[in-house]
């Protein structure tokens, strides 16, 4: 059954589930966009800097859209939700909060391009599958947002897939680095599909497909790509560093949030 904003506000159980899912979506994009913006000026070449920052911008735009949907549902002011919530309140997958590599974005950023490519590609594909599912979400404003996100996502996916196959096929050092990056990403990949403790509720309300459906769709979509680059995809993915959907996070998130909220928190009441 389709729910409008008004319907959602009348049904407490449904309302809570919609908020839960939107936090997962918003927090995922917010933190990954941040990791992308840390790469600004550091990408392998200038053309990539322009393309990657365009993707990070789109991703931040999607986060802003999801935070706005939360605000509409009465969860709080969108900027406050983005800038003030502590690490324990965040619902993003742990994979997306992991640092880009050694150093910070301000000093000695020894970032790993292989990790950037693999994380972004695997995430873009998972997000695409979720967005396809959300186009049929029972929550109408979310289904409408999904249509807009979907169009931009097409290019993100194409971009990262190109990098992925090119570097996997390059052999030598590139192949070795890519395989190590894949291993690290797979260790926490399952966190992308998790819907957290409230997963069954979200599915029951037809807000999104189940975790199993999402994961199977990902494997289905990725198998031919892995095959084309001669890589065997493992049967199971991990959540080695915890399930972010349930508020489990690493220290990497805490330091990122301190930076993201630094100016806002100088005076949250001020107009910036």
């Amino acid at each position: 059954m389709t729910h409008t904003l008004v319907d959602a506000l009348k049904d407490e159980c449904y309302h809570n589930s919609a908020i839960e899912l939107l936090f997962q979506l918003a927090d995922d994009d917010f933190i990954l966009s941040y990791r992308g913006s840390e790469w600004l000026g550091l990408a392998p070449h200038i053309e990539e800097d322009v393309a990657f920052s365009s993707i990070s911008q789109d991703t931040m735009g999607h986060a802003a859209m999801f935070y706005q949907l939360l605000q509409d549902l009465g969860a709080g002011d969108a900027d406050e939700l983005a800038h003030v919530r502590s690490a324990g309140e965040r619902k993003n997958a742990v994979l997306l909060e992991k640092v880009n590599g050694l150093g910070t974005y301000l000093a000695e950023p020894h970032y790993d391009w292989a990790f950037a490519v693999v994380r972004n590609y695997f995430y873009a594909q998972a997000k695409k599958i979720k967005i396809e599912s959300l186009k049929n979400s029972s929550y109408q404003p979310l289904a409408e947002a999904a249509v807009k996100v979907s169009m931009e996502l097409y290019y993100h996916l194409l971009h990262w897939k190109t990098w992925f196959t090119q570097l996997m096929d390059a052999g030598g050092e590139a192949r070795t680095r890519m395989e190590s990056a894949i291993k690290i990403v797979l260790d926490d990949l399952d966190g992308l599909f998790s819907l957290g403790n409230s997963g069954p509720e979200l599915t029951k309300h037809s807000l999104i497909d189940s975790e199993d459906t999402l994961r199977a769709a990902w494997v289905n979509r990725m198998s031919p790509v892995f095959e084309s680059v001669n890589f065997n995809i493992p049967e199971k993915f991990g959540m080695k560093n915890g399930n972010g959907r349930n508020g489990e996070h690493t220290v990497d998130l805490k330091s990122a949030l301190d930076i993201l909220g630094e100016v806002y928190n100088l005076d949250p009441a001020a107009s910036w």
């Binding site: 913006s37 935070y67 800038h83 974005y105 930076i259 100016v263 806002y264």
Partner: peptide, 12 residues
């Protein structure tokens, strides 16, 4: 770039 992540609102 130093201020991109720190910008004080989603719009900024």
């Amino acid at each position: 770039k130093e201020w991109v992540p720190k910008a004080p609102s989603l719009r900024r």
